[in-house]
């Protein structure tokens, strides 16, 4: 059997999936990036390899903010931005999807599709108030495991109104409501509604949000957020089964497309990469006042990639 690997290295989580020729998920891994993307990508591949012993890997793709780094580790056939990857995955899972709401660790995006084609998209600009990192932070502060956050929100009776415009104001608003004696469920639910309001005003501004609507990304695990979206939009919101690894699924599908288009073999370096020594070293280039921070990616003592310079003089090895 043939399979394709997709790797999505995000700010908060790193996801690795293996899919078959039909795009069905064979196995998936969701890991926290924890500031160590190289190690986590290797860890993810190791976990996937265990399930793929009798599968021939015919292609690999990477996406997410660490897509370039991941691509040199795994040997990617396709390195794509996360908008394209998420859109491709959503159309695969829910054919005819017209709106994709995606909320990840540090950014959130909306993708508008018509007839299977992306026609518009937006990402959060200067504000991360509605993203997963903020929810994470609030959950920690309230001493609630993030996994229970959403279910708690569903128990709310009278959601309190929280300012969603800014993470700092939202936090002080929450503290205020909590000191006033509001129930924690109502506060948590109010927070979900505030984040949705902020998302729709900011990221979704001026967008024509039509069903079917798919909600994906790590935050889609939060049932409170799903319900808040449904309440605000007046539409059913679909959370796909593999909502938290959709980027990786998209990367794998794109890799399969690319390998077929190109007609040559895959660049995937095999599961042995999990045991290789990778190291990243950086230095400040003093060639000009830009003082670019240049990163060297070293595999078993050899520099295999270099980036970070604006002028490109270090990029050629």
């Amino acid at each position: 059997m043939r399979g394709y690997i997709g790797v999505d290295v995000g700010s908060v989580s790193t996801n690795v999936v293996a899919i078959d020729d039909e795009g069905n998920v064979i196995d998936k891994v969701y890991l926290r990036t924890q500031g160590q993307p190289i190690k986590v990508v290797q860890e993810g591949l190791r976990a996937i390899a265990a399930k793929c012993s009798d599968i021939e890997i015919a292609g690999a793709g990477t996406t997410g903010s660490g897509r370039r780094l991941a691509s040199v580790i795994v040997g990617a056939d396709c390195v794509k931005n996360e908008i394209t990857a998420h859109a491709v995955a959503a159309s695969h899972v829910v054919p005819g999807v017209q709106t994709v709401l995606e909320i990840g660790g540090q950014d959130s995006k909306i993708i508008i599709l018509r007839n299977g084609v992306v026609i518009d998209f937006a990402m959060n600009t200067v504000c991360a108030a509605g993203t997963g990192s903020f929810l994470d932070h609030q959950a920690t502060r309230l001493n609630i495991p993030i996994e229970q956050f959403g279910d708690l929100a569903l128990k709310a009776e009278v959601p309190v109104r929280i300012a969603g415009r800014c993470a700092v104001f939202a936090e002080s608003d929450m503290i205020h409501k909590q000191q006033m004696g509001h129930r924690i469920e109502d506060i948590v639910c109010g927070l979900c509604e505030a984040l949705v309001r902020n998302y729709l005003n900011n990221v979704g501004k001026g967008k024509d949000i039509l069903p079917p609507i798919v909600f994906q990304g790590g935050v889609a695990a939060n049932a409170g957020m799903k319900r808040a979206f449904e309440k605000a939009l007046g539409e059913t919101v679909i959370v796909p089964e593999h909502y938290n690894v959709m980027g990786a699924i998209g990367a794998a599908i794109l890799a399969a497309e690319e390998v077929k288009r190109r007609g040559t073999g895959t660049l995937f370096r095999g599961f042995d990469v999990v045991d290789e020594e990778f190291e990243a070293r950086s230095f400040e280039c003093k060639g000009c006042p830009n003082r670019c921070e240049v990163i060297n990616i070293i595999r078993d003592g050899d520099t295999i990639a270099r980036w970070g310079d604006r002028c490109g003089k270090w990029e050629a090895l």
Partner: peptide, 22 residues
């Protein structure tokens, strides 16, 4: 002049992408 690599930049092989100055 901002990059200080006027000569070097022109002589080096053209990288794949992101070479604005070149």
């Amino acid at each position: 002049t901002g990059t200080g690599t006027r000569g070097a930049g022109a002589g080096s092989p053209a990288p794949q992408n992101g070479l604005p100055q070149d």
